[in-house]
Simulated scan of single mutants.
Amino acid sequence: MTLSAEPLEYAPESVDPPGETLKETLENLGITQADLARRIGLSTKHVNQIIQGAAILSPETAILLERATRVPASIWNNLEARWRTQQLREQESKALEESLPWLDNFPLGELEDRGVLPDKKKNVANLRRMLEFFGVANPKVAEELWGTYRVAFRRSTAKAPNEYATLVWLRLCVLAARDIECRPYTRDALLELLPLLRSLTVRQPSTWINELPGLCAQAGVAIVFQRSMPHTHLSGATRWLTPDKVMIALSDRYKKDDRFWFSLFHEIAHVLLHGKRLTFLDGDPATNPLQSAEEDEANRFAVDILIPQQYAADYEKLKANPKPFTKIEAFAAHVGLAEGIVVGRLQHDGALKYNEGHRFLKPVAFAK
């Protein structure tokens, strides 16, 4: 039998107590309970208690039964383990019923849509699935665990997020990142990769969206594309999974290439500049006013990667007079950058209105 990471459906009707099997075995062999007790050196009362399910069928007893019945001890042990597990599950179900209101915190419809839950019913089965999804024993443990996590989060957002939706989105990202094979992280490898990543901006998203994760995996960075989730206000996240592997998760919240590429290089800055202890959860790193020193550094890094200082004077001229739009096209070609990114920068700097230059912005959206 191979072990699987897939959750198992609980089916108590399929599990019989080991005493039932022992009783049938004795009947087939023509052995009475008293005779079995003499054969294996136990009291008749003890044998009867095993048959009634009142006494545990221990591994030592399983070996004795193997000799008396020629049924392998492993089978007796397995029957006992399955029976006791069922009893504990039934007890747990009663306890979990009291915790069903915990599910009200979560976007159950989104969880159904993303395949975490089969439906959005508030029942014990879905509560179990949620606990398995997060890898925790019960809701109390989950809340205590998240309380310790929050002190390691760095979050930039101008809006109050739904923390539970955020935890779901981040967990989806982490689980996806764990499945991505990466070389051990090296800072030099990531630095060497930056020019190539920047060059991808001029290509269509349909091409770089497949190439980008493989390139970053060579530097120890697991890139995850996770659809935006309502009420999380997240553009990206950075989290170290091991000392040799870091996750950068990106959402399609704004669905435009200018925001996507800024977010990517912003998250890369966290990897390169800000150590391995913190999880960074970033809203709109291009415009958010609530910034820490780390966020300011990451913003500046992204700005300088996309439009390096060597082009600063040219950009200032463009910013002073960005029209006609052929100037934007010429500048983007000159610096080797997607036109939409230049438009996004000009909008951020107030040189263009946010409803101007939309034709240059390439759509970015992640598949379900």
Rank of each mutant, 00 (worst) to 15 (best):
W146A: 00
P213R: 12
T166I: 11
L96T: 02
P322T: 02
P213C: 08
L96R: 10
S43R: 08
K368D: 01
A34C: 07
L241P: 09
F133E: 06
T232K: 02
P184R: 07
L96E: 02
R89Q: 12
A152H: 11
A176G: 09
P7H: 04
Y185H: 04
I328R: 06
S4E: 06
L306N: 01
L8T: 04
F134I: 10
T166H: 01
V303G: 07
K23R: 15
A125E: 12
L234I: 07
G53Y: 13
F134G: 06
A365F: 13
E90N: 13
D252R: 10
Q218I: 02
E92P: 02
E144S: 15
L190N: 08
L22Y: 00
D349E: 13
Q291D: 01
A286T: 08
A313W: 00
D257F: 02
E181I: 15
K276E: 12
E20R: 11
I63M: 10
S74W: 10
H233R: 05
H334Y: 15
P59L: 05
G109D: 07
P161A: 00
R84T: 00
R38Q: 11
V136K: 02
A365V: 14
A160Q: 11
L212Y: 11
T32N: 03
L103S: 06
H46C: 01
V116P: 02
P322R: 01
C182P: 09
R70Q: 07
K317L: 15
T186Y: 11
W240I: 05
T166N: 05
E92S: 11
R178S: 12
R114L: 11
F133R: 10
V364W: 05
F360N: 03
A54R: 15
L175H: 09
R171Y: 05
T238Q: 14
A5S: 12
P59W: 09
C216D: 03
V141L: 00
L175A: 04
L3T: 12
K245Q: 07
N299Y: 15
W102C: 04
R129S: 07
A137P: 07
S14H: 04
